[in-house]
Design a binder for these strands. Structure first.
Lengths: 200, 200
DNA sequence: ACCTGAACACCGTTCAAGT
DNA sequence: ACCTGAACACCGTTCAAGT
């Protein structure tokens, strides 16, 4: 398990091959099939391990509102460090997501959200956290892949400016470039908490 | 392009193979490489085609708040119909996402959100829409895969109830089972809009 | 310019044979 | 019970040869 997480981090999603893994563990290609159902199982188990660690680690805070932010940021940082986790979570619902949902639900309850609203508020916040983390991680990975981030965003903006059906305001590219992913992510969490407070 | 979208819808993400596609088009395996960079390009272009169609189709509504809901629901339904789109969007930022972001930004502006807040509010809403759609689509696909949905959720709940570090309230499983995905998705959009109204 | 399809370098998974 | 590694049935991509 640890070996496959290392492989995924180092080589990306395509780097996890049965051959590479069994070579790293210096065993035969067929050996892992005695411990795991197949490659998919490996990816799922690795994803759950990463998310589960974040959930258990983020238990320290007293203030529920701060605890929610800390938990959300923990997921964000984990997916930033392991981008394959973001892709996997969009592909397959996993046990760890269920634990994240209940953990967030409990904190929202501590915050004063009424019991009948907890499932809706909780799953909306979970969806935001996972969606935003995956989105930022994918963007960051692309930027790190040798592409110049600013040039890429500029190109995106120009490409879209050329789309006549949907013309762009002049400063769109600048707005795209000038922001900090982590701050913007947290601002989204706050929008959510404000909406829940206002409406539930 | 149309052929590969059909293949992806019918056979899933793994069903799009160069061999199946070229057989369907009754041409040689190497022929597509004269029109497209490779398989990844095919998946990216198909994803952009699906999203772009939703964006151009959802232009009818006058009230910006209703237009936002219609656009969000359009993305939700598209990803529900083409689940591979959800997975692809979590893996790679795409031009169509940029257009979605600006489209949502414009509508948020019409709704009265101040210009400096538009990028943050817009990307938060985009992240929610994409994350939630992918999540629900993945869950629905799993349920359709012959698994009994209720039994599966029940099992998830029991599995988690056995986790001693994080005990569950008794009715968690029931709450999981009794909801409509589409309604819950829209409730999340409304939480967002309420949060933006309250805070920006 | 575009297509063909054999060839190449990979995959995940299985399974008889070993320990 | 667990491991080995050859074998099998696939992949995506390339490229000399054709039209």
């Amino acid at each position: 398990m640890q070996a496959s997480i290392e492989l995924l981090d180092a080589e990306g999603e395509d780097g996890l091959t049965v051959r590479a893994l069994t070579a790293h563990l210096s065993t035969g290609r067929g050996a892992i099939y005695h411990h795991v159902a197949g490659k998919d199982d490996l990816l799922a188990a690795g994803t759950d391990a990463v998310i589960a660690e974040v959930i258990t680690a983020a238990g320290g805070d007293q203030d529920p509102s701060q605890a929610l932010r800390a938990l959300a940021l923990g997921i964000f940082d984990a997916i930033d460090a392991h981008p394959w986790v973001g892709a996997q979570l969009a592909r397959q619902p996993q046990p760890a997501i269920f634990r994240l949902w209940t953990g967030i639900g409990t904190l929202l309850g501590d915050l004063g959200v009424a019991e009948p609203d907890l499932p809706t508020a909780g799953s909306a916040l979970v969806s935001y956290v996972l969606g935003a983390s995956a989105q930022y991680a994918a963007g960051a990975r692309r930027a790190a892949d040798g592409e110049d981030r600013e040039a890429h965003l500029q190109q995106l903006a120009e490409q879209w400016a050329g789309d006549e059906a949907n013309p762009a305001p002049g400063d769109t590219a600048a707005l795209l470039v000038e922001h900090d992913d982590r701050d913007q992510f947290l601002a989204g969490v706050d929008i959510f908490l404000a909406g829940i407070a206002a409406q539930m």
